[in-house]
């Protein structure tokens, strides 16, 4: 039902090998840091893609769930817990908060849903800023240890203090995320998400519990976003309210829209390329956001499917053209 053509498989294999050897070609540690955070953003953007791109629900609290993950990991590791326990807990906490928010937010649709989730996002930001005893207020929490080493027989423990180790950790989580999303999206279960995006009333009339389905999509998305945030906190060694601010959501949104909504590679391409492009545009300083703001408008008007969606549309047009040709033949 959902098989991929051979050339796609070859390309994916090539990209995987390239990703494995990437650390050999990174010029300096500064650039390496950017590559690592870009991959983290790719994880979070991919999960935003599930709720926004595939399910059609514009959750503007997504950055807040990223931040929740970062804070939970920071608070727990500071209190002496192992990173490997704190990380899944951060995902569960975000899923729990998301469930609570969803109870309210999924009663609304469209713009209203976007506004309600945005409000919840800002509330979470304000909590991070004002609940000083727990979150450290404006200063945040700093001096975090890097991820707890994993003991490994014969080879000694795997440590996560070096950049290559962090890179492979993030790459592994990204691949796992893409694996999960791929399984979901290319299944009948995932088709119900797209059904809701396409026509919620019809989905309801065809026996799909739209509320529960949206909630599941939201839960998966929030869990993954928090995991990305949790890793972000250990790699930076600190967390501050900026990790939970609305700008994080807007950044993910820019990555997703420019890369290509509702396509798995689009989110990754956007999240990976744009921070690197931004780095090359360093000389433009504040003009960069001016540029990306305008670009967002241009893309959503003229290329609503983004960079990868554009490629896909061309491909689909070719398929549709072939289909209409063959059907004419069969009619004749």
């Amino acid at each position: 039902m959902f098989t991929k053509p051979i050339h796609t498989k070859l390309l994916l294999g090539f990209l995987f090998i390239a990703a494995l050897f990437l650390p050999l070609y990174v010029p300096d540690s500064y650039m390496f840091q950017i590559v690592i955070t870009s991959l983290l953003f790719a994880i979070a953007t991919s999960s935003m893609n599930l709720i926004l791109g595939y399910t059609g629900q514009a959750s503007l609290a997504h950055g807040a769930f990223f931040g929740v993950g970062a804070y939970v990991v920071a608070i727990m590791t500071k209190a002496g817990w192992s990173f490997w326990i704190a990380l899944p807990v951060s995902g569960l906490v975000a899923t729990g908060i998301g469930f609570f928010i969803g109870l309210f937010a999924f009663r609304t649709r469209g713009h209203f849903f976007a506004i309600v989730t945005l409000c919840f996002g800002v509330i979470l930001f304000q909590v991070a800023e004002n609940w000083i005893e727990v979150t450290g207020g404006q200063n945040g929490i700093f001096g975090l240890d890097s991820a707890t080493p994993i003991p490994f027989p014969f080879f000694g423990p795997i440590e996560f203090s070096s950049q290559p180790a962090q890179y492979y950790l993030v790459l592994a989580v990204l691949l796992l995320t893409l694996f999960v999303l791929h399984r979901v999206v290319y299944s009948i279960f995932g088709l119900t998400f797209m059904a809701i995006r396409n026509n919620e009333e019809l989905a309801d009339a065809l026996g799909i519990n739209t509320f529960a389905t949206k909630m599941v999509s939201f839960a998966i998305a929030n869990f993954i976003a928090a995991i990305a945030g949790g890793i972000y906190a250990t790699i930076l060694g600190a967390v501050s309210p900026s990790a939970i601010s609305i700008m994080i959501t807007f950044n993910f949104l820019i990555f997703l829209i420019l890369g290509g909504m509702a396509t798995l590679p689009g989110a990754v391409i956007g999240a990976f390329m744009i921070p690197i492009i931004m780095e090359f545009l360093q000389f433009m300083e504040n003009y960069r956001m001016l540029f990306f703001g305008a670009l967002l408008v241009v893309v959503i008007i003229w290329f609503p499917m983004g960079f990868f969606g554009g490629l896909k549309t061309i491909n689909q047009k070719i398929i549709a053209w072939r289909q209409s040709n063959t059907s004419e033949d069969s009619n004749a």
Binding site: A58, H111, F250, M289
Partner: peptide
């Protein structure tokens, strides 16, 4: 789709703030 106008508005606000 209404979501596109919303995203465009976010683009516009990022532009104005910058």
């Amino acid at each position: 789709p209404p979501i596109n106008a919303f995203i465009a508005a976010i683009g516009a606000l990022i532009f104005l703030e910058s």
